[in-house]
Design a protein around this nucleic acid. Sequence first.
DNA 1: GCATGATTCAAACGTTCGTTTGAATCATGC
DNA 2: GCATGATTCAAACGAACGTTTGAATCATGC
Lengths: 218, 218
Amino acid sequence: MERGYAATSLRMITAKARVNLAAVNYHFGSKESLIREVFERRLGPLNAARLAYLDRLEAHAHGRPLPVERIVEAIVVPALQVSRDPLGGGAVFLRLLGRAISEPASYVRETLPAYYREVIVRFKHAFSHALPHVPEQDLAWRMHFMFGAMSYTMAGNDALQLIGNCRLDGADDAESIIRRLVPFLAAGLKAPLTDSPARRTGAAARKTVNAVSNRKAA
Amino acid sequence: MERGYAATSLRMITAKARVNLAAVNYHFGSKESLIREVFERRLGPLNAARLAYLDRLEAHAHGRPLPVERIVEAIVVPALQVSRDPLGGGAVFLRLLGRAISEPASYVRETLPAYYREVIVRFKHAFSHALPHVPEQDLAWRMHFMFGAMSYTMAGNDALQLIGNCRLDGADDAESIIRRLVPFLAAGLKAPLTDSPARRTGAAARKTVNAVSNRKAA
DNA sequence: GCATGATTCAAACGTTCGTTTGAATCATGC
DNA sequence: GCATGATTCAAACGAACGTTTGAATCATGC
C-alpha cells in the first residue's frame, strides 16, 4: 500500500509478519500469487456487497429508475463498511486497492478486471436506466471519471492537497468523505450534455501552447 | 509510464535510448535525479501554462467570478496542448504524470507538491470566488476529487472500462476526452451541498456488512 | 513413543539492480 | 598535431531481490 508492489520486498513483509522468508513461497508459491490471494479474499466480498446493495435498491424500486445518488452509494458505501472492519482488511486494503488500479504491473492488470466485470455491467445498466438521455459512450466516460475520483480518494493521495494551506479534515473518517464524494459524483454523472465541442478553446489553447514554448525557451 | 518507477531499470532506458548504461549516472548522477529532471522539464511549463490561462481569464473578467467550466478548462486544456506536442513530451508525459501522482515512491511525493503549490492556491481562490456558497473544506475535497478523476484519466487507466462490453472510443483523442471531462468536473464542483449527513445509509450499510460477512463465511 | 507428514528455519542460489571504475574515444583551442 | 577536458564504453562492484534447498522442528494418529 505505501510502497507499491515492485518496491515492497518479501523480506519486508515476512519481517513485519514475524515469519520466515521462505514461508511465502511455501504457502503461496510466489510473490505474485501472494498479492493475488489478497485481492481474492478482499475484493470478491466487497464487489459482492456492492451488487447486493444494488439488488436491494432495485427490488424496492419495482422497475422505476433509481436516483443517481443511491446508485453511487451502492458503490461507495460498501467500501466504507470495509474500511471500518479491521477483519475485512480495513482502510488499508482500500488504499491498496486504490493504488492497485493505477499499478502498471501486469499481474494486476490481468487480475482486477475479472473482479469488476459484473459490477461494471450491472451498474452501467442501472445508470443508463436512471439517465436515459445520456448516450452510452458519454455514460461510459462518466463512469470512468467516477472510478478515477474514487480510487484516487481511496488511495489516500493527499500529496497535493496537504499544501493547499488548508488540510483536509476528516480524511480518516470514511463517512464524512462519502458525504462529500457522493454528491460530487452524482452531479458529474447528471451533468448536462454539451453538444457543441467547446469551440472557444481553440484560440485560448493556441496561446497556451505558446506560453509553454516560451517557458521552454527560457 | 507503462511499468512504474521501481520496475523500470536504467538498463531498459539506456537500451531504448541506444546510449551506454553509465551515461545516466554521468549526466544525471542517479536514477532518482533522472526522473526529477523529467518533471523539472515538463511539469514546470505545464503548470505555468495553466496559471497563464487563468491569468487571461481573470483579466477578461475584471474581478467578476468566472464560470466554473472556464476555470476547469484552465487546468485541463493546457494538458491537452501538451499531449498534442510531441516536443513537449506528448501524451506519454501525461500518462507518466497521472501515474506519478499515485506513485508511492518517496522521490515523487516530495518533489511533485512543490510544482503544484502555486497552482493549487491560485485555482482554489478562483473556485472559491466562483462558488462563494461552498465552504472551504468542501471545496478542498471537491478539488481533491477533481484531481483524482483527472490524473486517473490522464494515466490512461482503461483496465476496467475495457471490459464493460463497450470500449471507450476516442480514448486517444484528447479533445474529445476534455469535452466530456470538463462538464463532469464542473457539475461536481457546483453540486448542491448536502447538509444532512445521509442518515439513511445506516440501516442499508449494516445489511451490507452482513452480506460481506456471509460471503466471507461461504 | 514413535513414525509421518506438515511446517519452519538458516543458508545459499542465481539474477538483476543502481552505481562505480578506468581506459578508450571524441571534441576543441592553441 | 598535440594537449586537455569532456564524454563514451565495457566491465565489474556490492547490494538486494525472489526463489530454492535440505535439515530441523512441530503436530498428529496409532
